[in-house]
Design a protein around this nucleic acid. Structure first.
Lengths: 189, 189, 189, 189
DNA sequence: TCCTAAGCGAGACGGTACGTCCGGTCTTTGC
DNA sequence: GCAAAGACCGGACGTACCGTCTCGCTTAGGA
């Protein structure tokens, strides 16, 4: 039979308070202003409770992303049956997020964290849906005969997100119309 | 007559020592391990000499990039007369850089710095050539009748770099063949 | 009749393990390196078991002293019938203990603990015998007609121990001959 | 010629603020409640400024004692020409200090610090005057023909202080009359 | 024979202080 | 007036213990 561990179990309320505080402070102040001490004090928690369960602030942020506390869940492509609408909606949701000044700052902070820490990068991939979410949706569209190759469209999706990321970090303005035009052009082919 | 500034002029040797130390330490240890004190001590320079001329470590890095100390100059598209070869060479040079483990780490550090600081982002855009370098080359190709629209190909170029950046930060392996195939496919159209 | 308590009685083996660990760690590392967590872990005991029975680490040390685990029992003056020999033996045993480097360190740790905590101070008094042990021996000598006043000799004994303590904490070397000379001189009078 | 060091010189005002804060906090709260962070914050000073100049809180306290900030200077024997009066005054000043509850607590804290740290012990010896101060005074008395042997009386003085210390740490009440009686008895011989 | 109160090892918890590192500023001496 | 050296105040780092608080398990009366 299972050997139960002894000692008090991990406090879920502390865990939630830490993730709440982290998400909030990250959104308010950005990645490099985020400190373990700030999180601990905002969460009403001892620092050791953080260090006991996470090796770094990046790991906390990664867990926040995993739970959808940083980026809206709408970034996962939906399936309404109309691949063109779904794909466009997916790109637009990301683009809309990145087009506001506040969203852009947040996105840049996420990129900085992801660039420094593998954990965050992997969670970002999942949160954006370029991981498996998009491919799954596209394969459904192939089954429905709406498109011919999932891989090619996926590559396009990735390129669109890539342009957004690149423009965010190089501070080149994003024109919403551009993205839509890209989508139209490529889905047409 | 105009009263010239008095006192010793700025020391060029200190400036160079600071930029040398910054480039080296950045390449060796990355963005968040880069410290002003570390730069000062490696350059044999007082901290105040740094603060007198640069507002932040990001500004120093930006100046390093401006002088081509971080990223090879080969990222600026060349003009051999053959637009296809030049474009491919440009993408390949960036991709080749990002494909080595060492280059990838360095690139991620640059991305992190760029995400945090506008200066670095702007210099990164220039260093990659997605700014004016690529467009100039493409317009020459239009003049030569090799392609029809500079803007469209430029967008493609940007998308390719975007994919590289996105894959770097999300830790999704880059397949060299993919990029070449993209280039071929799009230039063909 | 008295209502016996229910539940498991106090574990004597835990108590002994705690006192053993405390004595050993105190002798090895001294007073301010002695920690409750260190004792608990060395004794293979939960921290709560310590806090249930002792209010502080000083109280544990006091109990150790009460059981003669810190200081040899030989510090209690013996009665061989010859007061001069007994008194000299008593002073010499304390002096001999304090004269070795290891003994001096241990003694200093005891002094530090005693200075901080009344409990330990009281136990130290008992352990040294300046409390009732010496006086009892001296009163026997008065009965036997060997000395005239117990109080005066007791004061002398206290002064001798006082010198030892003072020299220990002020790091003034102790010369063994000095003490013997004191004893002889004063007992002669 | 002297080679002047470069860089800002040590701040005397910070040094004084640290010693002031240390003396005050030590007197108010005792040795084991004295913390480096508390000193730094009370002195309005960065912690690093403390660690730059002192290796431990014991070293700060030792410097405080060296400057007479902990123990009154009156503990150094005076020379009025009357050795009996001077010696009695010296013992009485120490005894008077130790006899008040507040003085006793402070003295115990000093003893605890001295027992743990050689530096403090040595300064305590100097502050008490059992070091060279007492001997010098007694040798003057020998010169004046007032006493025969400086060494013997010094030993007595040491024993008296020793009794005080021993009684402080073992919590045995001090009777002021006792000490005076000791002094009289021995000086008479 | 069960019930139940207490002790126990384990260890998570909110805190405080540690000693270190670095940021950005200020203050010297030397050129 | 610039530069090196480096002291200064402040703040975050990651660690060690504090004393308290659950946990699940064991132990031994009393019902």
């Amino acid at each position: 039979m299972a050997q139960g561990r002894r000692g008090a179990p991990r406090s879920e309320s502390s865990r939630l308070a830490i993730l709440d505080a982290t998400s909030r402070l990250f959104a308010e102040r950005g990645w490099d202003q985020l400190t373990i001490e700030g999180i601990a004090s905002a969460a009403g928690v001892g620092k050791q409770t953080i260090y006991r369960w996470w090796p770094s602030k990046a790991a906390i942020l990664a867990e926040c992303m995993l739970e959808g506390r940083i980026i809206p869940e709408s970034f996962i492509p939906q399936d309404t049956g109309d691949i063109r609408a779904d794909f466009t909606a997916w790109v637009d949701s990301i683009l809309g997020f990145a087009a506001t000044e506040q969203g852009a700052e947040l996105f840049r902070s996420i990129i900085a964290a992801a660039a420094d820490h593998e954990d965050v990068g992997v969670r970002l991939r999942e949160a954006l849906g370029t991981d498996s979410g998009l491919l799954a949706r596209l394969e459904a569209a192939v089954q429905a005969g709406q498109i011919q190759s999932a891989r090619e469209v996926e590559a396009l999706g990735e390129a669109l997100i890539g342009v957004i990321v690149l423009r965010l970090i190089t501070r080149t303005p994003l024109a919403p119309g551009d993205a839509t035009r890209y989508v139209e052009a490529i889905l047409a082919s």
